[in-house]
């Protein structure tokens, strides 16, 4: 079995936001929405710092759907619009989404973005991968692990574009995959482990 997963090297991550825009472009994510965000961890301003001057620290946290093994969003979704696919990805069937936002309430990572209105594209044409389905108002969306690309055997767009090579994508079920090895040797950890969602996105320092 294939269980896709990702590992993000926080030591290498320079918080450049390239992955965030790569994602927006690839998936035709509309105005006012992001599937992938780069947070300055714990800070109330971007590029802020923790601690007291001059003993400061700052880390960046690129955050998108964690493709949980035990996805809280999928559990609560009334129509099965959110599902876990055979590659271990958590996906949304937009045709089944009734826009109840149970999934948004359930996701501990605020990974989802809702189409509060008919998506407005800036620029106003359909940019991005043409295989990515377009969304309408009233449905929830989020990182798909670049389903369209990964289905074609390509790596996710954010992984391809990261200028620091801080993102590793691959099969968690294969102990020899680069991603599995990174998690094993560099003590990969999951976000909000206590929530029991068992993310398939790992972070390591």
């Amino acid at each position: 079995m294939t269980k896709y997963g990702m590992a993000i090297n926080k030591t290498r991550c320079i918080g450049c936001h390239t992955c965030a825009y790569a994602c927006k472009m690839q998936n035709g994510v509309a105005k006012g929405a992001r599937w992938n965000r780069v947070l300055t961890e714990g800070c109330d301003v971007e590029d802020g710092a923790l601690g007291q001057y001059p003993s400061l620290s700052r880390t960046y946290l690129p955050l998108a759907c964690q493709h949980c093994e035990n996805p809280a969003c999928q559990r609560v979704c009334p129509t099965g619009a959110t599902y876990k696919d055979e590659m271990g990805r958590v996906e949304i069937d937009y045709d089944k989404c009734i826009g109840c936002r149970m999934c948004m309430a359930a996701c501990p990572y605020n990974a989802r973005s809702f189409n509060w209105e008919e998506p407005v594209h800036q620029p106003d044409f359909v940019y991005g991968d043409k295989d990515v389905p377009q969304r309408t108002k009233g449905v929830a969306e989020k990182c798909t692990f670049c389903k369209e690309r990964t289905d074609r055997g390509e790596e996710p767009r954010c992984v391809q574009c990261c200028p620091l090579d801080a993102r590793i994508f691959g099969d968690l079920d294969d102990p020899n995959s680069e991603v599995s090895k990174a998690i094993a040797t560099r003590h990969g950890y999951q976000l909000l482990e206590e929530q029991g969602t068992r993310p398939q996105v790992y972070y390591f320092e």
Binding site: H17, T18, Y127
Partner: peptide
């Protein structure tokens, strides 16, 4: 590539 390259879209 960086964010600005992508952003040209």
């Amino acid at each position: 590539i960086c964010l600005r390259g992508i952003n040209e879209v």
